[in-house]
Design a protein around this nucleic acid. Structure first.
Length: 634
DNA sequence: AACAGGATGATAGATTCT
DNA sequence: AGAATCTATCATCCTGTT
């Protein structure tokens, strides 16, 4: 961060429009001595509204619980009313920022501590960002505190709750941390949901936040998940307020102002969000998608990283391997990484392994030296993969790789439209037509199968590109084949990462495969020549389970395959039972559903909290249990 | 089973601002 | 010149309706 030289940078917070002059000198905490022009009057009013019976007292408590001073909260509620908590939070953060701008360096740490951040956290943030750039420090602190507030799974594990009822223990552990709360009077915690709700409100979250989180995370979500969700949401909201410069918000009680504000609010918010994310990215550049996307190395490129340092908590046994789409909504990968022991994701595009792109992130604790690829190498270009298309391939279609293989394919109507668009021309079509056709070809992965004729890939061809044996998915409906394949691993890519296991487990491995799909991990290990001793495969789709079972028999596996339809079935008891029977798991593989993360989902791109993608937390839960049980049995 | 249906984020290049 | 901003381009393990 290039530094503004000192804390006196009032320019950073250029708010002086008429409406905002009144707050320009306002400071949030008793640590700084700047006083308000009419502070007394405001505080007087605020005092009055602090009574326990006041309708706003709950919301005041809420924000105080977040670390803001009572006076400041009261003032903001005075000015904005108590309904729009979003607006209140933004304003509070603006106040914080503005007071920062006028506070001196020596008071910097005190100031942040006064906001409710811990001293060591502040010192760290100041060290990292320099003293000058206060808004950067605030951002960093917010990031830290969101990270800290969320309770990573490993902490639960570390604290010794291994059995299937650890969530209950966790609840008990927290339920008496705070005795002063008025929540009891309206809640009677006899159901699990209400218990969680009560618990969350006691932790300082609002009832609304808690309910939303529970709705979004599902009824079985743990407190850890819920707090994580709320903190993420709070951080996003807080983030909105951190742009003091150009997009100034009118700040007054003027009704028209507010109305206008609301009209532009969404647009404004989006713009802010974008900018904040840009700045947050600068903070944790660790999660930038790499270019070229080769992870720690691919067999076809010379660039390679041989060493990495895993966080202590991540080191096995068991080994684990988690996969999901690389281009997930912002923050998703940092959350995933946080829940998986802070292991840095390895982003790899399968175009370095086969003829189709497939940008994915992998988080694993496997060694990364001495990897080797599956042989023979699969075709690496479209022409190699589909030699027959070469004859019809026009010179102006310069593709050499296909795009990501998806679950749907182009309609016949579209290929027909393309044919018609091209038929009118004897020579090269005009540029506009070329562009249209190329756009569609890229979008739907069309290949040339005749004069002016494009077609989507056949399921067989997709199987081949993804590294599965021919006819692996044969026998189910065409639509299902596309769907199952589109949701699968690219076998060569995964095998390259898993290849390091071969020397370590010459006798074979016990595999726990979550969200197995059509068995990409199993196929990869088999093709690597790593014997599969016992495989427990969890897969919701019966069609897919049958495919894996059928492959298992066709390939004359000697081991045991156990399939479980529902990931919820795999609780602590069941796992203990399975693990004592097999002697533990060597590897836990899983790629949790991505349909709430991917850009191609028009309707429910809800991020990790989405209905399906939230199953990621089950992966964490189960991995944690396995880790715990393994450690205990050693 | 076929079909239609945008939104998000990354990136590169051009343009303007400092 | 270099930073900041704008613009165009491209890719994306898909869902709801018919």
């Amino acid at each position: 961060m290039s530094g503004n030289s000192s804390g006196g940078d009032a320019d950073n917070f250029n708010w002086d429009t008429e409406d905002e002059l009144e707050i320009d000198n306002y400071t949030i905490s008793s640590h700084s001595g700047v006083s308000l022009p009419h502070g007394e009057a405001v505080l007087g009013a605020a005092e009055a509204s602090l009574g326990a019976d006041s309708p706003n007292s709950k919301i005041i408590d809420h924000f105080v619980g977040m670390g803001f001073s009572k006076e400041m909260v009261a003032k903001v509620i005075e000015e904005n009313g108590g309904e729009n908590s979003n607006l209140i939070l933004e304003t509070l953060l603006q106040y914080s920022a503005s007071s920062l701008a006028s506070s001196s360096n020596s008071k910097l740490i005190d100031h942040f501590v006064g906001m409710g951040f811990s001293e060591e956290m502040v010192v760290k943030a100041v060290q990292e960002n320099g003293e000058g750039n206060t808004d950067t420090i605030l951002e960093t602190l917010l990031t830290y505190s969101a990270l800290e507030k969320s309770v990573p799974m490993q902490q639960i594990a570390d604290s010794g709750y291994c059995s299937s009822d650890y969530e209950g223990s966790f609840l008990d552990d927290f339920s008496d941390t705070d005795s002063s709360s008025e929540t009891e009077e309206f809640m009677n915690p006899d159901s699990d949901e209400e218990r969680k709700l009560l618990h969350l409100t006691k932790m300082g979250f609002s009832e609304v936040e808690a309910s939303i989180a529970m709705e979004r995370c599902g009824p079985d979500s743990s407190i850890a998940e819920l707090t994580d969700f709320i903190c993420a949401a709070q951080m996003a909201k807080a983030a909105d307020a951190l742009f003091p410069l150009e997009d100034k918000k009118p700040f007054s009680n003027d009704f028209n102002h507010k109305k206008r504000r609301n009209l532009d609010y969404d647009k404004w918010k989006r713009k802010k969000q974008m900018k904040l994310e840009k700045r947050l990215n600068e903070i944790d550049d660790a999660l930038h998608l790499p270019n070229p996307m080769i992870g720690f190395g691919v067999p076809t490129e010379s660039d390679q990283i041989i060493h990495r340092k895993l966080p202590e908590a991540a080191i096995g046994p068991p080994y684990f391997y988690y996969e999901n789409v690389a281009l997930a909504p912002k923050g998703v990968w940092s959350t995933i990484s946080r829940f998986l022991y802070d292991v840095e994701p390895e982003f790899v595009d399968s175009k370095y392994f086969c003829a189709a792109a497939r940008k994915r992130g992998y988080i694993h604790n496997l060694p990364i030296d001495n990897r080797f690829p599956l042989l023979p190498f699969p075709p690496r270009t479209i022409h190699e993969a589909f030699p027959l298309t070469r004859k019809w391939w026009p010179s102006w279609d310069t593709r050499t790789k296909l795009n990501c293989l998806q679950t749907c394919t182009a309609s016949a109507r579209l290929t027909d439209r393309i044919r018609k668009a091209l038929e009118h021309n004897h020579d090269e079509p005009p540029l506009s037509v070329q562009k249209f056709v190329l756009d569609q070809c890229r979008k739907w992965n069309l290949v040339w199968v005749g004069r002016n004729k494009v077609a989507p890939l056949e399921p067989d061809e997709v199987e081949m590109l993804l590294g599965f044996p021919r006819n692996h998915t044969r026998g189910i409906s065409r639509t299902d084949r596309y769907k199952s394949l589109g949701n699968s691993f690219q076998v060569d890519t995964v095998a390259y990462h898993l290849s390091v296991l071969k020397d370590m487990f010459p006798e074979g491995i016990n595999l726990l495969s979550l969200f197995s799909g059509i068995g990409g991990a199993e196929v990869a290990l088999h093709r690597l020549g790593i014997p599969l001793k016992n495989v427990v495969s969890v897969e919701i789709s019966e069609v897919n389970r049958n495919l894996v079972r059928s492959w298992w028999e066709q390939t004359n596996q000697r081991g045991t395959l156990i399939d479980i339809p529902d990931v919820q079935e795999l609780n602590g008891d069941r796992l203990e039972q399975l693990m004592s029977r097999f002697g533990g798991f060597d590897l836990v593989v899983g790629g949790s559903p991505c349909n709430n993360l991917t850009g191609s989902n028009r309707h429910h791109r809800d991020g990790l909290e989405g209905k399906d993608s939230a199953l990621f937390f089950d992966y964490c839960r189960i991995l944690d249990l396995v880790k715990c049980i393994t450690a205990r049995n050693q």
